[in-house]
Amino acid sequence: MGAMVSLVAVLVLILIAYVGVKVLSLQALFGVFIPYLAVLTFFVGFILRILKWARVPVPFHIPTTCGQQKSLPWIHYSRIESPAGTWGVVVRMAMEVLLFRSLFRNLKTELHDGPKLAYGWEKWLWLGGFVFHWSFLIVLLRHLRFFTQPVPGFVKIMDAVDGFLQIGSPHLLMTGVTLLAAVTYLLIRRFYIPQVRYISLPADYFPLFLIFGIASTGILMRYFLKVDIIKVKELTLGLASLSPKVPDGIGAIFYVHIFLISTLFAYFPFSKLVHLGGVFLSPTRNLANNSRMKRHVNPWNYPVKVHTYEEYEEEFRDKMKMAGIPVEKDEPETAEADSEESEGKE
């Protein structure tokens, strides 16, 4: 059901843009107004989301340690998996964000006859995720050629390397294909792996369909349906320089493309896609494993009711004395039960 709802939602979005442009001629709405609104929503929403997280403290120091702690000097400790200092954390986070370190650890648990549990090699999710995210990033950066003039050198180089293979005209850009392939894989695994299908929500299918739509409309536009790229850049550059104008005669496919992208931008801060920012804030990863070396303060630490030694001795003094265990108050008379609960420190 989740998949159908999401697919229909994306198809409706495509239809809206198509009808909006083809029938109602709302080019300015889809080419200027909605993109601005979406980008604004994205920035404001994303910042607010991060600030929302930032306002919540990390009371305890709870890194997941995936390697040997730093202890005795002769024990080789795991500087990255169980970092004791800032640099270790930086490297750990970099590996997490750039290389998807944790996902690379993935295994497949298999139950064989015996019974025997075996843990198999399973790097496909890592590969799919890795290719997907990196392709997406490169595709995104490549699009800077529509938003800058003159186009920075690194964008041109990226374009040249991406289009190294001389396939078709204009040259096939490899990351476009890999993005589409990866997003397709991520979709298919949601259908085919029963466990993943079981946990999948519309919110999981929707972004995948949306990105599938974005990538395929982009590819359609570049290789098949063709739009006047100069006019497109006039529009996009106008957007970037905050002096929007809408040239005539850009194909509807462009508006579908940009509408889907606008949807993605606007949807971003309110969805699981915020993992883009969240991954940096995860307390199990971004903290050093130095909790016994360095004091960490909980801002909302408050005093709690404790059972003090005095209360304890009061109750067991006789038994302790009989057992020869030293006590604080050695007076023979039983003290008036000072049942007043004493507050702990802090």
Binding site: E110, H112, K116, A118, G120, W121
Partner: peptide, 12 residues
């Protein structure tokens, strides 16, 4: 190579 080695590793 990979599959047989993997099976060896899992001892299945």
């Amino acid at each position: 190579g990979w599959t047989t080695l993997e099976a060896d590793r899992k001892e299945v």
